[in-house]
Amino acid sequence: MAAPPDEESLESRINKATNPLNREIDWDNVKAFCELLSNEPEGPQLATRLLAHKIQSPQEWEAMQALTVLETCMKNCGKRFHSEVGKFRFLNELIKVVSPKYLGSRAPEAVKKKVLEVMYSWTVSLPEETKISDAYQMLKKQGIVKQ
């Protein structure tokens, strides 16, 4: 019997996919989150807001899981999500995590390191999203990214 249509919201999916009690990455919920955000007209906008909030969590494991969801969705969710992540509205939230002027002095080191890694990977894989390179260059200028 086919599973009932999935009424789970993006919010409940991301909460499950980033639950600090998870012993490991919950790939089922990560995949479901990616599919759900692609199928809703405003999915990418809502997904980026939810992800930004989770990535800024002081709980390292919750933030690291959120970054894994972000990375997975950037590989699988296509253009609409790319362009939403490629906006300063979202990139600024990542900048706040790594910049000492904002959350950088309190954010876990592993989270900051992974934020910079994923941002760098997008400057290579998504050159058309020019704002990502702008943000990355600015972090370099401020010495947040080591040369």
């Binding site: 007209p41 405003e42 906008q45 609409r80 906006k87 300063f88 509205r89 990139l91 600024n92 900048i95 706040k96 910049s99 904002y102 704002k131 702008d134 943000a135 600015m138």
Partner: peptide, 15 residues
């Protein structure tokens, strides 16, 4: 067909 709402508004880069 689904309404594709596409909003290009954005903020400035945080310095």
């Amino acid at each position: 067909s689904k309404i594709q709402y596409h909003d290009d508004s954005d903020e400035d880069l945080l310095e």
